[in-house]
Nucleic acid binder design. Structure first.
Lengths: 260, 260
DNA sequence: CAAATATGTTGCAAAATGTAATTATTATTT
DNA sequence: AAATAATAATTACATTTTGCAACATATTTG
């Protein structure tokens, strides 16, 4: 285009302005931002993805919103990528046979796994998630153990020292765990220290542990590495991640399972 | 493409505004919303349907109203003594002050207590009930501790040895406990051995313990006496039981509290 | 009660947005 | 200044959202 005005800004400057607008209005629109900075929408998308990977905002169709840990956030998250999560759930359920002891982590993807597991018989379910416990205890032929502890209102699940200790009492055949992101170097990462520690213990404890991650988490860089995550048997995703991630992951040990 | 006149709001922003208006006015009109956001009525209808699917509002002809669990209220009405339970809940809540640590047993009557407690601030709730934990963790200014254990599918609550042990870790100001019946000789009884034991421990542990029993339980004879039930501070009921029961109860110690 | 008006529903087309791969530009390093 | 890496733009195509129009249903009005 003709000579662009000097309004063009470097990435850090854009990021600052984006967050400022977000704080002021609650939402930002990709088109409006691209127009304002006089850059392509692609660039703005990259900016938003970058910020979202750091948990500073939530991506939505057409822009982004404040990252709000509210009740609405949980019910909304359940609908994001619903198809992908259901597919992951079915693939996960294929790894479970009647009569097994299954651990289910909190999260919307693991909730999808729980839904798929309703088909199985005589399962014993261990979980920290209130929703999963409630869902599964209403099914016939399922025993449910709820791990106690302080309830995190964002996850609607037990966290903290009590939950951590309760985990060690169980012997489980297979565990399905969530995660905050799948980093470029093939590691599953998390948002909080306690969450990472909790998942780490489960991965170590279960006969086989699988992380379930939908594709929106690919390349996302959340602050905490999940210790000893290599002990996991595999990572279940809804489609094949970028090649670099695949290679890094397989080098570390866990196999990559892509749901069909 | 030509420059877009894009001051148009993102879907989540519309959703937020719709809910805000709903909270303020009690109703919203499709025409008014379509006009305000400068989008078609279909779009607003889709928004409202989306929100209705998540239980955040009720659709009505021409718009939407605040979500009233009318269906729930109806089925509750069908359930015996819904009004009685609500009254007991209010009376129980009067015994609780902001900032207290409250234990809530499982059961429909204690759920009514939980509902009445939403008014209070800075409570810490300990419970074995999945429904109560889920309800309360969605309220602001409430901390929730879920006691873990095997889930009884009838009560939808934790029972068994884990729950029993978890109880002893807590110091609670006041406990509200359910019961299977109020026997003719003024004792609270229960259906199961483990339930009786659990309630007994809670009654012993809490600063003040109250049994909450609606009038359908008067004179009912269930198999198990709750040990040391006399340690309870009181029994809350929705109307005065037969004179014989009253006398027997007060002779044992707990006071009788009739909700108004 | 019936006509008039407003609202709900459906299928489909258009517009906007998302994604990925490739090319161009800018910055950094040597 | 040339080589290299990082960032952004462009393009092409899939997906989602929105708007439109025709018709069915409900509500209001006389």
């Amino acid at each position: 285009m003709s000579e662009s005005q000097n309004t063009r800004a470097l990435a850090p400057r854009r990021h600052g302005e984006i967050l400022r607008r977000l704080a002021a209005d609650g939402t930002v629109s990709i088109t409006a931002l691209a127009d304002f900075f006089d850059v392509s929408r692609q660039t703005i998308r990259r900016d938003l993805k970058h910020l979202a990977d750091r948990g500073q905002l939530d991506l939505v169709h057409g822009g982004a919103t404040l990252f709000e840990p509210t009740e609405a956030a949980f019910t909304e998250r359940r609908e994001e990528n619903a198809g992908a999560k259901a597919a992951i759930g079915r693939t996960a359920a294929d790894l479970v046979r009647d009569g097994m002891v299954v651990f289910l982590d909190s999260g919307t993807t693991t909730l999808a796994v729980a839904q798929a597991l309703i088909e199985r018989k005589n399962l014993t379910i261990c979980t920290t998630s209130l929703s999963i416990a409630l869902l599964m205890c209403r099914q016939p032929l399922v025993r449910v153990h709820m791990l106690g502890g302080e309830i995190d209102p964002v996850e609607e699940a037990a966290v903290g020292i009590d939950a951590l200790e309760a985990i060690s009492h169980f012997r489980v055949d297979v565990a399905f765990l969530g995660g905050g992101g799948l980093s470029p170097d093939g590691e599953v990462t998390d948002f909080t220290r306690s969450g990472a520690e909790q998942r780490s213990r489960m991965a170590a404890l279960a006969g086989k542990a699988y992380f379930v991650l939908d594709s929106s988490k690919f390349g996302r860089l959340t602050p905490l590495r999940i210790p000893r995550f290599e002990l996991a048997a595999g990572v279940i995703v809804d489609r094949r991640p970028p090649e670099a991630i695949c290679e890094a992951l397989e080098r570390k040990g866990p196999s990559l399972i892509v749901s069909t």
